[in-house]
């Protein structure tokens, strides 16, 4: 099956951002915290995007910022997926009181908006990168839990799961060898959406001054540092907007394609 054009474009830009993040040290023209020019210098041959509020090269800040943002978002997504899907599958396979306890607890977590709860917790926690990943990953695992439980409940009534149980396989084996492979495709598509959510989440926290701390760069922080420039007509703070929006749309296009592909494999709609 051929890949649609939109998915190819999405995949291209997603790969571009990830490569830029991985090889940030090689491609960034200047250091992350190196002051190389005046305050808010305009775009020039030396500084492709101009300089920021204290004279650092904005292109380099954007590349290093992308590295921080994408790293935190990726780790957060991995954490939320490992916690959410393992608990979700366990709840679906085990059923009974364990399912009830986990599901009601997730209902409760989701009754408080994630951003508000994150702010409450961060008011007493030290704001460091591992803590941010932990808080965001755990708060977001509730959504993964709901999805993976819903998917797994459909799978656990299949004959092959029944057969595995009758063979005397343990709960762990059923989860990892029977349920997981068959639930993988919707989870992968969801992973793209959760990743975008993480990017927006960490950017928002950093913008509020409660995420990544200076001098470390990240996209939300770049907005915060350069926001005063807006009033003088300097668009430096809008550049991360462009980066976040293109990354979000690209990942969405890829996720849409994966979702369509898997439904057509299972005899559903779409191509």
């Amino acid at each position: 099956m051929r890949m649609p054009v939109s998915a190819a474009i999405g995949l291209f830009f997603t790969a571009l951002y990830f490569l830029a993040a991985i090889f940030a040290d090689l491609i960034a023209p200047y250091g992350m915290a190196e002051i190389v020019g005046g305050v808010w210098d305009p775009v020039s041959a030396d500084h492709w995007l101009g300089t920021d509020n204290i004279g650092r090269d904005l292109l380099s800040r954007m590349i290093y910022g992308g590295q921080t943002t994408i790293f935190i978002a990726t780790m957060g997504t991995l954490l939320s997926f490992s916690v959410g899907s393992v608990l979700g599958f366990t709840a679906a396979v085990a059923g009974g009181w364990l399912d009830q306890v986990l599901s009601r607890f997730v209902d409760l977590m989701m009754a408080i908006p994630s951003l508000i709860f994150a702010l409450v917790v961060l008011s007493v926690m030290p704001v460091t990168v591992p803590v941010l990943i932990l808080v965001m990953g755990i708060l977001d695992s509730t959504r993964v839990f709901r999805l993976s439980r819903a998917v797994a409940v459909d799978i656990t009534v299949m004959d092959y799961v029944e057969a595995a149980r009758l063979r005397g396989e343990g709960r762990g084996w059923v989860i990892f060898s029977e349920v997981l492979p068959n639930a993988l495709s919707p989870l992968v598509a969801e992973m793209g959406l959760r990743f975008i959510f993480m990017v927006l989440f960490i950017s928002t926290l950093s913008f509020l001054g409660l995420g990544v701390q200076p001098p470390l760069a990240d996209w939300g922080g770049i907005v915060k540092e350069n926001k005063e420039g807006i009033v003088y007509g300097i668009p430096a703070a809008l550049i991360p907007a462009f980066a976040i929006a293109t990354l979000a749309i690209s990942v969405n296009l890829v996720a849409d394609w994966i979702l369509n592909r898997t439904t057509s494999v299972k005899g559903g709609r779409g191509g």
């Binding site: 975008i196 927006l200 950017s203 928002t204 913008f207 939300g220 907005v223 926001k227 807006i230 009033v231 003088y232 007509g233 668009p235 703070a237 809008l238 991360p240 907007a241 976040i244 929006a245 979000a248 749309i249 969405n252």
Partner: peptide
């Protein structure tokens, strides 16, 4: 496009064009 951009960036885009 509007759901892919965080609120605060939408805010500064609005400030940049409508206020400045």
């Amino acid at each position: 496009a509007t759901v892919s951009v965080p609120e605060f960036l939408l805010g500064y885009i609005a400030v940049f064009f409508l206020a400045v």
